[in-house]
């Protein structure tokens, strides 16, 4: 499979009064056509800023993409002019955001908002765009689409608004859909609806997806490949089955252990990851996870581990990953 997207050494920083926030610290990865990649991390891990940087949606200033290349379909998005990027954004690469209430314009009807992209990117006239907007709303499962087109966002529920966002995202048949925590603000039963919908649409349209989330549960049923981020670095990348069977990075292992699982008996006590994520203005030398890591050795606090391939399909940034694997082999993930 050819790579649809290749990110090389992407670095994004924010220049604030308190200092330079190192949000994304040199990440590289590839995404193939039609593939679903999940990027997992907690708040401040750089997962959102990382993908926002891809389509240059970083507010500048204070933000700045200080280094890196983003090859999309044979072109480096970082080298394009603003106008050229705008042609790609919303058209070839679409985004859906976490909060469907704040990402829709409250004073425009749903129809107007969907039709805007169709008229702008595909050059449709008003009646064509309206027809297509109805089709799109039907496709994302909104009942009575033709009559709901003239409603305003506040007349839709949270789940329906997220469906509208997805309809807008898919309106120009993108090759890549970036979904930034699209189900975090929704209830579990609605989350299940949205995940089902996106997977169905993916089979229909065949776009690649980058799904950003903090929830390792959602990822398991959705992604083919997973990238785990911590403090602006990729700490682990693996095929989804491999990751859950045998995480290599102590942080991934910690995340899996700290959440109770519904299908397992009630555990006696949760195993939290001690401490706090590091301050991105003042990152510790060495591995950023070292202060919280139970596998920490002297080397970890001095020298940051590079992200190295451990097999053709996976990479990990940890000096002691072999110890993690040995522990899992002996005692399992869930102790």
């Amino acid at each position: 499979m050819a790579a649809l997207l290749e990110v090389k050494g992407l670095k994004t920083q924010f220049f604030t009064q308190d200092g330079v926030v190192h949000a994304v610290n040199g990440i590289s990865y590839k995404l193939h056509e039609g593939e679903t990649l999940a990027i997992v991390g907690e708040s401040g891990s750089g997962k959102s800023v990382g993908v926002m940087s891809l389509i240059r949606l970083i507010p500048q200033p204070p933000g700045k993409i200080v280094a890196g290349e983003v090859w999309f379909d044979g072109r480096d998005l970082m080298a394009l002019t603003d106008d050229e990027v705008r042609q790609v954004r919303g058209n070839r690469i679409a985004m859906i955001f976490q909060d469907p209430m704040t990402s829709l314009n409250p004073v425009l009807t749903i129809g107007q908002q969907i039709m805007e992209a169709l008229q702008l990117h595909l050059g449709m006239d008003k009646s064509q765009a309206r027809q297509r907007a109805i089709e799109l709303l039907e496709m994302v499962g909104i009942p009575g689409a033709a009559s709901r087109l003239d409603s305003y966002p506040h007349q839709y529920s949270g789940g329906m608004r997220q469906r509208v966002m997805i309809a807008m995202g898919l309106s120009c048949n993108p090759q890549l859909l970036i979904a930034d925590e699209p189900t975090t603000a929704l209830d579990v039963t609605i989350q299940a609806q949205i995940v089902d919908l996106v997977q169905g649409l993916k089979e229909q349209i065949g776009m690649a997806i980058i799904w950003i989330t903090h929830d390792l549960g959602v990822v398991a049923g959705l992604a083919e490949r997973v990238i785990v981020m911590y403090a602006g670095h990729i700490v682990e990348e693996a095929e989804v089955h491999e990751l859950y069977e045998e995480p290599h990075h102590p942080y991934t292992l910690g995340l899996l252990r700290s959440v109770p699982r519904l299908d397992m008996g009630k555990s006696k006590r949760l195993i939290p990851i001690d401490g706090l994520p590091p301050d991105l203005i003042d990152l510790p030398p060495g591995c950023p996870f070292a202060p919280r890591c139970q596998y920490r050795t002297e080397k970890c606090t001095q020298e940051a581990p590079p992200i190295d391939a451990t097999s053709p399909t996976r990479r990990v940034a940890c000096w002691n990953w072999e110890n993690v694997v040995a522990d899992i082999k002996e005692g399992g993930i869930y102790v």
Binding site: V188, A192, Q193, L216, G217, A220, G221, H241, V259, L262
Partner: peptide
């Protein structure tokens, strides 16, 4: 339905799982 909608962090289980997806909103 609520229980079946909770995702489980295990891809093998998720692939086989039968979900009760509720329609509509509250």
């Amino acid at each position: 339905a609520l229980l079946s909608a909770v995702p489980i962090p295990d891809p093998y289980i998720e692939e086989k799982r039968q979900r009760i997806v509720l329609e509509g909103d509250v």
